[in-house]
Design a binder for these strands. Sequence first.
DNA 1: TGCATGTGACATTCAACCGTGTCACGATTT
DNA 2: AAATCGTGACACGGTTGAATGTCACATGCA
Lengths: 223, 223
Amino acid sequence: MSDDRITAPPPNRRRTYRGECLVARRAERRSKLLDAALECFGTAGYHATSVRGICQAAGLTERYFYESFEHSEALLEALYLKLSDDLETRILSAVEGASPDPVAMSHAALDVYYRHCEDERVARVTHFEILGVSPAIDHCYRTCTGRFAQLIARVMHAIAPAAQRPPQQMELVSAGMVGAVVQITMHWVLSGYRASRSEVVESAQLLFSAVVGHWQRSPNTGT
Amino acid sequence: MSDDRITAPPPNRRRTYRGECLVARRAERRSKLLDAALECFGTAGYHATSVRGICQAAGLTERYFYESFEHSEALLEALYLKLSDDLETRILSAVEGASPDPVAMSHAALDVYYRHCEDERVARVTHFEILGVSPAIDHCYRTCTGRFAQLIARVMHAIAPAAQRPPQQMELVSAGMVGAVVQITMHWVLSGYRASRSEVVESAQLLFSAVVGHWQRSPNTGT
DNA sequence: TGCATGTGACATTCAACCGTGTCACGATTT
DNA sequence: AAATCGTGACACGGTTGAATGTCACATGCA
């Protein structure tokens, strides 16, 4: 049974068209779709955007949408993951690049984060549109915020290694820190970016410093 | 201008039907719709719910939906405002009822809040479904979280009156505190309520204590 | 009892969107 | 040059849901 190509597009993976082979063209189209998704989801909103709208913005036809994504939701998820991964990478390198001073490290991380969120489309996709879509997307969101929470937990531990805490509490407090950072973003976005980035970074950092200081003072008891 | 009733249903405001007058029946139907909305929006999700679905759950026909609400979005907004108002009222009375000890006050407030969020439908509507729906709903959300942020600012000020801060920072930090509390809720919900309420309350309170303590220690400077 | 009004069940109209299909044209290979 | 493949424009059927309308029956009022 050589049924490899009955159903869909036959083999010619390396045939070129306008200078590029199949995989390159596919990747380019996929990338265009992600760009268009950022624009549409980030301005009109996910639920106000149709597949057609995405394709129009991408300058492609619907066929190529379904070539790369099963449905609109898959595109949203891919976009979200891309934005989150980019952010995480940049935060990690910023933290590593900063001087090994705790304040400098968290400042670098927060600065990268809020710089990231200065693009309103990015902020909207990753903080508004992503929520309440479906259980699958919820799970994806949870996983990503969880990663950031772990990152915060690591940084806090690096800053204040003495302050070991029960993991359950550590987890909740880290989630709370992520939430604080996230909510400050939402507030910032919904206010039309009234405050400057440095003010925002400072306010967020205040929370970090506060928690670290608190833990350093009261070594290991609840409340 | 007594234009209360120009367009649609003529006068008979006090004609009774099954024992109740028009306004009472309307109020009852509206209430049923809100209950149904909590159930549908809070389980299936806002975007997966149709007007028909709401009406079916409420045991009413679509006509009565449009009697009370212009569209689905208006119902969501009304539900959200109702839930938020209830919460705020209960928090205020809990805070006033608690002994004038700062820890007891914030504990009382947080306990009421997380008790409120123990109903997953409530938590989902007010923390997930409400986001990314429309600019109007965003504005509504912002207003409400802003109210809670102000409440926090007041409580923190009551706890640590010495720690006066520039209002801009106060606003952002309060937003951050709301965000922390909110995100802890989201984490809690998405984890299937793995932690107990008291653990959650404690973790949130830790953040409060940390910020208050931080401010008390370092009176009035940035970072 | 008769009549107006309230109500419930259901039909209807209209629009949007998804997913697929068709077809002609441009690019590439042989 | 001819055959094949990639692409773009657009049409089509199917589904869903919003919003309104119809009609028979129940309830209250004169």
